[in-house]
Design a protein around this nucleic acid. Sequence first.
DNA 1: AAGAAAGTTAAGCAACTACTTGACTATCAG
DNA 2: CTGATAGTCAAGTAGTTGCTTAACTTTCTT
Lengths: 115, 115
Amino acid sequence: MIVKDVVNQSKPLDKVFQALADGTRRDLVERLIRGPASVSELAQPLAMSLPAVMQHLQVLEASGLVRSEKTGRVRTCHIEPAALRLAEAWLGEQRTGWERGLDRLGDFLTEKTDE
Amino acid sequence: MIVKDVVNQSKPLDKVFQALADGTRRDLVERLIRGPASVSELAQPLAMSLPAVMQHLQVLEASGLVRSEKTGRVRTCHIEPAALRLAEAWLGEQRTGWERGLDRLGDFLTEKTDE
DNA sequence: AAGAAAGTTAAGCAACTACTTGACTATCAG
DNA sequence: CTGATAGTCAAGTAGTTGCTTAACTTTCTT
């Protein structure tokens, strides 16, 4: 969305969640959590062309979830856990907000039955 | 993707992360965490048409993040925290996997310097 | 130098997304 | 009954996504 990119600067969370919204990309993350890997290592178990895998990796890099550097002819990719934590933090905030809500409701009900 | 929907049955995580990949929808979640609301209450602060908001709500409902029921002419929406926890759990698994990796690396390095 | 291996670029395509406007259906209030 | 309120349905559209194949560039290996 042009408006969103200009006005809202397309927040980091957008890109992280968007990146994780695809099963193939989550598979890549799960693989990279176990350690760095080259592009073709990553592509080998996936039923798709190499360029397709590269595009997924580009999305992951744009989201900050993955970094890579090329030495010689092989590009090695690794996880960037900060981006993972960013998403986890947002979800955690929502959950604690919800739990505080339940507490307040609990207090309210206790007050009610106490008076 | 037709293949993904057929072969991969479009996993719940796909839908949850996809739903959260949009800032407007995250705003809706943040609002609903503070308590239930009607469609027009939810739409009021958002700079878009009512049908657009409804479409976002449909995405949220399809992902399991939000439920709603209609009484009279007003549909009341509320959060379904289970879906939130599903996403948080996946992220948590990745993070702990990463941390275990760091531990193993630490052990490896200690062994090395100890011998 | 010749070929294989690893990756990259580009173009194209079908499906999906995030909207829009306009017309319509219920429900409630006076 | 009439009108306002709350929501819904349908169609259309610009832009994005997830792939594909074909052609290319680098960097090893022999």
